[in-house]
């Protein structure tokens, strides 16, 4: 009798480090169907449809160029057009932002489904990350079009060989967004306080992630406040990714291999912490959400 093979066992919350990768693989079709649902339904009954994916980063870049480079007189390095400079930063930043905001309310948003059927919960945030990847693809495409335009105007740098690292860079952004998102969604099942923070927290984070300015620009600043903020900005893994992308694609700033490794390690750690907390929360969250 004791030798009987059970398929699985339902027990109270135990080891948080138990992952059933086989099960997640078995539900891979669900992952793709969720991705399809996300893509198809967002812009149903809109006239512009998927064009909205493009309008948002383009308008943000215009505003940034106006505010930071026009009113604020921030210089972009070399001959690079400020609009292209901003578009590069925003395109990559957006992926992180969408992953974070899209996954940070996983439990709350899906409590109806989660309250009725079981499937590996992590499929949900994973699907958000993947569908955002498709949006990123579209946005990178429009970036390339603008890049070619500005390149012909001689207002863009040449891409460097480091561009082959672009997938790693995107992965870092995905891991960071997903890791933080899973952590926040888990922590907010019982106490909602953090949810309030997400909206403007992401906004604030953008300004210390070197999106509308370059790292070399602020290093030269003699403003006390800026000097004090530099360590925070420099050791923010997001800064390294944004800077990294601009150095790959536009050849501006230096590509810092060590800091890039640092960003990769941090993002992996953040992702693992998120996964552990998420895994621990998923079993009983329905009682407290």
């Amino acid at each position: 009798m004791s030798s009987k093979k059970w398929l699985y066992e339902i027990k109270p919350v135990d080891g948080a480090l138990r992952f059933n990768f086989k099960e997640i693989y078995a539900y891979r079709d669900l992952l793709f169907l969720f991705v399809k649902r996300d893509i198809v339904t967002v812009y149903k009954q809109t006239i512009l449809g998927p064009l909205w994916f493009l309008i948002q980063p383009l308008l943000t870049s215009v505003i940034f160029t106006l505010v930071f480079n026009g009113f604020g007189a921030i210089e972009t390095p070399g001959n690079i057009h400020p609009f292209l400079f901003n578009l590069a930063g925003i395109t990559i930043w957006n992926y992180f932002k969408e992953c974070l905001t899209g996954t940070s309310d996983t439990f709350k948003k899906n409590q109806n489904v989660f309250g009725k059927v079981y499937f590996p919960r992590v499929i949900m945030p994973m699907s958000v990350t993947v569908s955002n990847l498709l949006k990123l693809g579209i946005q990178l495409f429009i970036f390339i079009i603008f890049y070619i335009y500005f390149y012909l105007q001689d207002a863009a740098g040449q891409p460097t060989v480091f561009l082959v690292l672009l997938p790693v860079l995107i992965m870092i952004m995905g891991l960071l967004g997903l890791g933080l998102g899973m952590t926040i969604s888990s922590l907010t099942t019982k106490y909602r306080d953090l949810n309030v923070l997400v909206g403007f927290g992401v906004q604030l984070l953008m300004y210390v992630s070197a999106v509308p300015y370059s790292l070399s620009e602020i290093r030269n600043s003699d403003n006390e406040w800026v000097q004090a903020a530099i360590p925070f900005i420099e050791y923010n893994p997001l800064t390294q990714v944004i800077e990294g992308f601009r150095s790959m694609a536009l050849h501006t700033g230096t590509f810092d291999g060590l800091m890039f490794m640092y960003a990769l390690v941090i993002s992996t750690v953040v992702f693992l912490i998120g996964l552990i907390i998420f895994n621990k929360t998923e079993k009983n969250f329905i009682d407290t959400v």
């Binding site: 009987k4 093979k5 059970w6 398929l7 699985y8 066992e9 339902i10 027990k11 109270p12 919350v13 989660f114 309250g115 009725k116 059927v117 079981y118 079993k283 009983n284 329905i286 009682d287």
Partner: peptide, 25 residues
């Protein structure tokens, strides 16, 4: 809900050697 793994038990265990699917609503 516990059988369909929507929520976990406080104590005890459930062993099964088959796939469980539920028609909870």
């Amino acid at each position: 809900k516990i059988l369909s793994r929507v929520t976990g038990p406080t104590t005890g265990s459930i062993k099964t050697c088959g796939r469980i699917a539920s028609l909870l609503e």
